[in-house]
Design a protein around this nucleic acid. Sequence first.
DNA 1: CTCTTTGCAAAACATTTGCATGCCT
DNA 2: AGGCATGCAAATGTTTTGCAAAGAG
Lengths: 135, 135
Amino acid sequence: MNVTIALQRLKDNGYKTTYKREKILHFLQQQHRYTSVKEVINHLKKDYPGLSYETIYRNLALFTELGILEKTELDGEKKFQLRCGGEHHHHHLICIECGKTQPIENCPMIEMPKVDGFSIIDHKFEIYGLCDACQ
Amino acid sequence: MNVTIALQRLKDNGYKTTYKREKILHFLQQQHRYTSVKEVINHLKKDYPGLSYETIYRNLALFTELGILEKTELDGEKKFQLRCGGEHHHHHLICIECGKTQPIENCPMIEMPKVDGFSIIDHKFEIYGLCDACQ
DNA sequence: CTCTTTGCAAAACATTTGCATGCCT
DNA sequence: AGGCATGCAAATGTTTTGCAAAGAG
């Protein structure tokens, strides 16, 4: 996923392209890691001093809903990144120091046996550790 | 894990047994599911009308630190349950409707290949769905 | 011009902290 | 008695909502 495709998806769903939305997406594209709301707003503030949290919250929620972003919760904070690995299902290695992520192809659900009396809807598999730079 | 063992562990670590702590643990023992702070306090309020959130927050954090409770974050809320499956490592099926959990023995990390430039410290694997009763 | 997006203010929650009092051991 | 536990009050942090004004197509 990149900014161009993301903006196209916005348009396709009847939403507008704004400079702030572009900035958010460009920033996340550079990050390659799960990024907090605070980090996003601090970055955007450089260009838009009057920027408000609400705008960021609303847009990150919208982007997530449209499948443009992936969301996780790290130490009680919501964090986001541009959906990586295209459309196909995958999981991540996540650096607990800097938040950098790396997609992995292994999905444990493939080998998961059926369980009686429980219908599986979703799952979460995340591996935490230290990336090269943070070790 | 049961209440008796939990209280023993508290004592072993220099903490005291109080009626409120016992109530919290008994309540969680009955639950067999991830339970929110709110649910705990609402239950305890029946016996202790003047009970405060702080006490619950502090104790749940303490219990988690001592390995008495397992913690997860479901829809932005911290939830707790008595550590099940004894001491050994395991994961859970979690009902997204009622929070009920069921331990599973499969751990995807067993088959996870080493990754260059990333030292693995921890992982999270949770399966979400609907339990028997909630389907 | 019309409808979406944004900012503002405020509210709604969730969680934490300092301090004095109360309760276990 | 001595030290941990609790309640109170208040602060802090996060996220949401209603509404009027500004901006995109």
